[in-house]
Nucleic acid binder design. Structure first.
Lengths: 340, 340
DNA sequence: TGTTAGCACTCGTGTAAAATGAGTGCTAAA
DNA sequence: TTTAGCACTCATTTTACACGAGTGCTAACA
């Protein structure tokens, strides 16, 4: 277990390093007013902290920097609850307003605010469709062979998919089809669509359509082709301002993995609610081992949850970032809940 | 005017430099088999070419690199029409297939192919809505106070906008409204929507709705709020592989401007059809003065044109890139035309 | 008169040695 | 237990020097 003094030294080292990105020496620590003992004493404590794995040296005679274990301890035990400044709160209030009606815009704004206020890269993941039900289907024929199906869910989410129409199908048939679909599929949970489609619709189709096999085939493609959940990112360039990324190699490998939207989305997707901090090598992706990823969830009601996240160097302003994410998560949740 | 020999030397210098990114010396040029004269002669020619501003030195005793003027001459006069290799054509054919029905997917694939085949950054701009007409409007009420309007254009493009519904408006009224709108607005060019809305609809609204002022207001917002044209980019990290971008400063300034989607879109937006090459300082944006931007247009029929572009270092494989863009432009155009 | 060989000169690059200084670990005294 | 003192380490910066690719110029050559 760490002594109080060790904790104090560790705290100063991490706080300073987060601020300066440079190794901290014993003299610098001794200068801090909260610290009452001499550099020599501090050196002894630092040697112990290093043995315990909380800090490390960059070379034999350098000052110390926090190790990942040090950050972990810091995040777990040393974070004092921070409050956002009034001006920050104002920025948040002004940019995410309840009057906004579009999910997309709210989320984009939030990502913008997050990255602007932190100078890290922000990511927001939309919800996985769990219990949303289908509210309405429209099919609009575009040409003789193509049509577009428009789906509206109970949460107001709109999607459209293009599909081929069997040659045998007339406008008339299409209308019938839409009626059948709306009749049978309204208020059906999205997840059960396939089942319903196969069970009930198939039977009805057989009665009404000349070419039910093809119709079913195309319809299935249109309705069930799950599009990947969209990931909103902002402030991708912020990470370039961090001194730890003055190496083109690093930038390249990190950016390459960040461009893979599905991989990122998968990283953020979580079933558990609440905040999660991944420091350095705790991250699954090799390319992120110099980074920390902090995620938390927001709720859209009806059991749908999404994720907001910030990606920065391991030397992150954990305290501020965590409160900021908490505030934003609450705000998003309350905005979305007010919609339904 | 340049002598044949000067042109030949210039051509070798640019070809070699595009390939190696290193200054070319007189000896290296003399080694090329097409070149029959000695290094000393070449040095004389190079001195002249430098006086004329086509090439420059990086320092007093270095080999020569092309100047922007040199590239300009190269692009204007020295490009020999290239053919794509069979494997490249196969890749293009396989990734952009006529059976694809979604604009978005076709365009995304094209951007991917472009950046993959060139190792530069590709951008594709969707069409500005010119003569598209409205095909159908649907309004679906989401809650007591909100609804979503879904617009389908003659080209099959689907858009949806959320809007507030006046408290006085009942579901019944909403249906009437949709009928009126469909009746009056179908086949109306998007551009004339506002006019029509103000002229005819307003009058009808007054008869049918208790709260026509509010309805008109909200409706206008929903229908006329033009969303910016989407810009599809791919291969943003490719530029990091170019040796001219081994400087974090440069990367940062370029990436920062690339993140501004509207600025990029504005840069690509053009009224003229055909290919355009902007070399270095010919670019409007300061951040792009080490880059070349090559754009060309594609057509969607009905007077709509979009833009495809490639962004790379000034030391670009102009010849290959230009043929590639031409091929892709044709393919996109023919794909889209086959839809209508 | 155009072309080429020869040569002195320039300047970026790479390497090695020396100087600097921030910071440490250890010892011994307080 | 704490601290002052000191030798030691090592990244960084500076300086010097050698190397070599490439040039410009001059003079000789075809």
């Amino acid at each position: 277990m760490l002594t109080d003094r060790q904790v104090q030294v560790l705290q100063v080292i991490i706080d300073e390093f987060i601020q300066s990105a440079e190794p901290i020496g014993s003299r610098a620590i001794a200068k801090k007013e909260q610290v009452t003992f001499s550099p020599a004493t501090i050196r002894n404590e630092m040697a112990d902290l290093e043995d315990l794995g909380f800090i490390e040296k960059t070379h034999t005679s350098s000052g110390r920097i926090p190790s990942e274990r040090g950050y972990r301890f810091y995040v777990d035990h040393l974070l004092s609850p921070t409050r956002l400044s009034e001006s920050e709160m104002t920025i948040i209030r002004n940019s995410i307003r309840k009057e906004m009606l579009e999910f997309e815009r709210v989320v984009q704004q939030s990502a913008r605010v997050l990255s602007d206020l932190t100078n890290y890269t922000s990511m927001i993941l939309g919800p996985e469709v769990f219990e949303t039900t289908l509210k309405q289907i429209q099919i609009i024929s575009l040409s003789e062979y193509t049509a577009v199906a428009i789906l509206v869910t109970s949460t107001g989410h709109v999607e459209h998919r293009y599909f081929n129409v069997p040659a045998s199908m007339k406008t008339n048939d299409l209308e019938k089809l839409v009626n059948i679909l709306n009749d049978r599929l309204t208020d059906v949970p999205i997840i059960q669509l396939e089942e319903k489609l196969y069970g009930e619709i198939m039977v009805l189709l057989r009665e009404h359509s000349d070419d039910y096999e093809m119709t079913y085939h195309y319809l299935k493609e249109a309705l069930l082709d799950k599009q990947p959940v969209k990931l909103y990112m902002d402030g991708k360039t912020n990470i370039l301002m961090q001194p730890e990324f003055n190496d083109v190699q690093k930038i390249q490998s990190l950016y390459t993995v960040m461009e893979k939207e599905d991989e990122m989305a998968h990283l953020l997707r979580t079933s558990e609610q609440g905040m999660k901090v991944s420091i350095g090598h705790e991250n699954q992706l090799d390319e992120m081992q110099d980074c920390s990823l902090i995620t938390t969830t927001y709720s859209l009601g009806e059991g749908q949850i999404g994720t907001i996240a910030l990606l920065g160097p391991t030397r992150m302003e954990y305290s501020r970032v965590i409160t900021l994410l908490n505030v934003l998560s609450k705000r998003l949740t309350s905005t979305f809940h007010s919609w339904y």
